[in-house]
Design a protein around this nucleic acid. Structure first.
Length: 247
DNA sequence: AAGTAAAACAACCGCAAGGGG
DNA sequence: TCCCCTTGCGGTTGTTTTACT
């Protein structure tokens, strides 16, 4: 027994929306507000399924949407957030007013991935490509999860998914203790090739670069007593993440 | 101008989480 | 506590547009 379909497929339109359908949907939501997507199509006189209406509204018709090209600032913000959150497009979208998760996802796949690759950065791990390929011992959030999936080949999809989530968003996991990858604490950061959040995002020497700070021995970071505290930029990243609002 | 490839965008599908009965 | 329903999310596919030969 499968679940019942979300709608009567035989009597629903699919594909591109017409102007008339858009108008109907807008008019209905203006009059009644969002919500009750399942019953909305019938009430609004649309031959669409509720999911389709919701998607159309959220991704295209919402009045607060900011259409047009992404700015350089938005680009960098998306990269940072993706580094932090992984493919949590809705969370990323929550930090970009007027942008939708779908829009950001598409933009990532068509523009930013290539941009990072051009910078020599693996878009999945946000680490330099050659380093990711060579350094098998260093933890790489996304890459390690993928490797684990490939290795195991077992159907424990959920387990794997949660592993990925835990590793990418350590702050969410209240059980695990987060440990930075092994790193000789006496060795200067430069020598080990570890990068701060900014550098791993391709923003070498940018204003967010903490490598520089670490390397000149900033006392504010307490780097001598807490090496690795700035692990992949999580010092700032965690703070950022905690301020995120869920939709 | 026509054909083809690549890029960009919109929409669909399946799954999971959360809430209510 | 369990089951069902609704909603939301992320991955993927399909279609349209643009660039190139």
């Amino acid at each position: 027994m499968g679940r019942s379909p979300c709608c009567e497929k035989a009597h629903t339109n699919k594909g591109a929306w017409t102007k008339e359908e858009d108008d109907r949907l807008i008019a209905y939501i203006r009059a009644h507000g969002e919500g009750c997507w399942r019953s909305l199509p019938k009430a609004a006189g649309l031959l669409r399924c509720g999911k389709s209406c919701r998607l159309r509204w959220i991704n295209y018709l919402r009045p607060d949407l900011k259409r047009g090209n992404f700015t350089e600032e938005e680009d960098e913000l998306i990269i940072k957030l993706h580094n932090l959150l992984g493919n949590k497009w809705s969370l990323i979208a929550g930090r970009l007013p007027g942008r939708t998760d779908n829009e950001i996802k598409n933009y990532w796949n068509t523009h930013i991935r290539r941009k990072l690759l051009n910078r020599g950065i693996d878009p999945a791990t946000h680490r330099p490509i050659n380093e990711a390929a060579q350094d098998e011992t260093t933890i790489s959030f996304a890459a390690s999860a993928v490797k684990e999936e490939e290795k195991s080949g077992v159907g424990e999809k959920d387990t794997k998914r949660s592993v990925v989530l835990q590793e990418r968003c350590p702050d969410l996991n209240l059980e695990l203790t987060i440990s930075p990858p092994y790193q000789n604490q006496n060795e200067p950061l430069k020598k080990t090739g570890s990068l701060c959040f900014a550098c791993s995002s391709g923003l070498q020497n940018g204003k967010d670069c903490s490598c520089r700070i670490s390397s000149i021995g900033s006392s504010t970071s307490g780097s001598s007593t807490a090496p690795g505290y700035d692990f992949l930029g999580m010092k700032s990243a965690v703070l950022d993440y905690r301020s995120l609002e869920t939709k």
